[in-house]
């Protein structure tokens, strides 16, 4: 469970102060699929970065699985991120000189798994996204859609509870975008909570819930589908 209460985030330069998030509150339940929409500069990405603990915030409380994130040091936050959160980016962000195997290996290395376990997990993750035959390929040898699938495999390899996606289909043509979206839905059905920032309202409609951010605040909730397991729990 993810809970934000009155989160504030201010960017300062010498001349201007930008309030990226102001009194931002949100709760995301287990196994939800949340789409976050909003205009450029509304604070979507800042929200996602704070959620993933890549950025600090200036006020409010953020609890991840009942743990107050602001009280953790860098090492603990990194550990938490490594164990519980997977990231997917618009531009895939695969490391260009690592082959697929080694790319998926990255989060597992920081987890400290032994070689056998890592190999097992990498193979499973790549199989899940349908790319198990290309372990030794470099990212540049793949199409955009394939690269994003590798990125998803990398995000999933450590069995995170949350998957944070920032415009995951933004750089893909519509056919590939559909495939990736399908993959995300499957993953969600298998139990991973997904928070996805997107421009695409059609994609957003396929999520359980839509959050619209304007000027750093949640302006609108829209429950599209009930979350099955939560309803039962």
């Amino acid at each position: 469970m993810l809970k934000m209460n009155n989160i504030k985030k201010v960017f300062r330069t010498d001349l201007v102060e930008t309030h990226a998030l102001r009194d931002f509150s949100l709760q995301v339940e287990e196994k939800e699929f949340v789409a976050v929409t909003g205009p450029s500069g509304s604070g979507k990405t800042t929200f996602l970065n704070i959620t993933g603990m890549l950025e600090t915030f200036d006020g409010g409380v953020y609890e991840l699985d009942n743990e107050d994130v602001s009280k953790l040091n860098d090492k603990q936050r990194s550990r938490l991120r490594n164990e519980k959160i997977g990231f997917i980016f618009q531009s895939f962000n695969l490391i260009p000189d690592l082959n697929l195997f080694d790319n998926v290996d990255v989060p597992l290395r920081y987890r400290g798994f032994n070689a056998k376990e890592r190999k097992q997990r990498i193979e499973n993750a790549l199989e899940r996204v349908g790319l198990s035959a290309r372990l030794k390929h470099l990212p540049s040898q793949l199409s955009g859609g394939q690269q994003q699938r590798v990125a998803i495999a990398r995000a999933l390899a450590g069995d995170p509870r949350f998957l944070l996606a920032d415009e995951p289909t933004g750089n893909l043509d519509s056919l590939m975008a559909r495939q990736v979206m399908q993959l995300l839905e499957e993953i969600n059905q298998q139990g991973t909570t997904i928070i996805m920032v997107t421009h695409d309202s059609e994609l957003a409609r396929r999520a359980h819930r839509n959050i619209h951010i304007v000027d750093g605040q949640v302006s609108d909730y829209q429950d599209l589908q009930p979350v099955l397991d939560v309803a039962e729990a």
Binding site: D74, K75, R77, S78, R81, I95, V106
Partner: peptide, 10 residues
């Protein structure tokens, strides 16, 4: 990317 995937500063 490495930070996002869980590498600490150290």
């Amino acid at each position: 990317v490495r930070r996002a995937l869980g590498a600490s500063k150290l």
